[in-house]
Design a protein around this nucleic acid. Sequence first.
DNA 1: CTTACATTGCGTTATTACAACACAATGATA
DNA 2: TATCATTGTGTTGTAATAACGCAATGTAAG
Lengths: 256, 256
Amino acid sequence: MNFDKEISDHYLRGHEKYLRNISVDCIIFGFHDNELKVLLLHARYAMLWALPGGFINKAEHMDEAAKRILKERTGLDEIYMQQFHVFSAPERFNKKIHQQFLKNAGVIISESWMFERFITVGYSALVDFSRVQPVADVFSNACQWFNIHDIPEMMLDHRNILNKALENLQAQLNYHPVGYNLLPEKFTMPEIQKLYETILDKKLDRRNFQRKILGTGILKRLNETKKGVAHKAPWYYKFDLRKYQKALKGGMGFEL
Amino acid sequence: MNFDKEISDHYLRGHEKYLRNISVDCIIFGFHDNELKVLLLHARYAMLWALPGGFINKAEHMDEAAKRILKERTGLDEIYMQQFHVFSAPERFNKKIHQQFLKNAGVIISESWMFERFITVGYSALVDFSRVQPVADVFSNACQWFNIHDIPEMMLDHRNILNKALENLQAQLNYHPVGYNLLPEKFTMPEIQKLYETILDKKLDRRNFQRKILGTGILKRLNETKKGVAHKAPWYYKFDLRKYQKALKGGMGFEL
DNA sequence: CTTACATTGCGTTATTACAACACAATGATA
DNA sequence: TATCATTGTGTTGTAATAACGCAATGTAAG
């Protein structure tokens, strides 16, 4: 299917395939260079950045839709993600942006389900930065990571959605383990600590952090230290998947 | 507008007024006789109980829709309520129940937006039991309180939604104050303790509870004790609204 | 080869939070 | 006037937490 056809088909017939007035937006967090990152799309012609989002197939669970959308943008499967909030302000739509987009795409459409108001459900995902291959969709001309402290101007209320996702991530940090999807297979204690510090945006005591995180039992120390570093080499660790899953449900039992 | 007209209008033209495929369901908690209660509707003809719910007007914020629905059932305004989860299983609709309902109402309708699948957003509300005047809607023939431990059979996944709301209420108890909407204006220490015990479904130490709840500063002791009780009369307390509001945002700072 | 030194791993201590329990005060009822 | 279930306040032992000390490590500088 060519570009124009795909676009006009989506605007004219999308409502036959998807639920109306409701969408899903994903906040995809990654961790790289000791910085928390978010994956954003650049909307064609609108000159604004947007959260990766999409719609729910008529016979599809919303969680499945979110996973599908995430897979399309990152190529990743089996990701830990969860809904965190619904955004429903009646003014959260912008017909002009769509018309501008269609005009630039050379498609003439006067009426479309896409021009209507949308309620959107925010999903938060944690992914392994190194395994992601960002892929743009038909509505966007770029897909890239942004530092959480350096977010560009965004469409509609997307900035607000992003902020709420970050708050949610911080709040959950004490009750759910974080890291399995954000860190590489093996990692050092300073690395996982830096992850926690970045999310919480505050410094933690090195020695107390180690005691607590080891106390949960979700980590297994490998018989191997990091090579090629100045000073004392730290041990490598990996997650104990069984205990990690258990902690996902039962909580961590500590506070940072 | 007569009954038949109202029904058929809703099924035939409701989609002109409301967003499609999306609904709101309210879990309305109250406290009475030292028991946690939930307000339920009895769906006409379906012989099943249901959560009070409704739809979102095309130009209405979802939070407003939830408040409107709650006001229609309880008469109450300015209620503390919040969304807690979205339920989106593709099988959560039942055309047969609607057809049975319409048949019994003497209305013949073959196609309707109401027969489609709905994604529903759960809202949790805490209300003052004594001020509620339960009112049934056109689709129901009863509206009454049920003890949380004595819930009747419910429509679709409504029981599941209710369970999730209760879990959510319990989880929030340590971080947000509860009681302003659930208790009368003035109340005693044993009364508010019983409220906490009922929600958490476990006994708490009387003396430690008092120390903690007073430690938050959200209570003000009145210069008045409860009258006409055997044994020592407990003091009356009321909420310090300023500190209560502050704690709603900033948390309570203790664990029960 | 030796030394300096930033970093790691493990340990100690003081403080705070918490649960469990004791006891006197209260005030309606017997 | 005595009884007694209940309330308000206090105490104590234990566990969790924050703050800090110090030796071991191993690269890099001298």
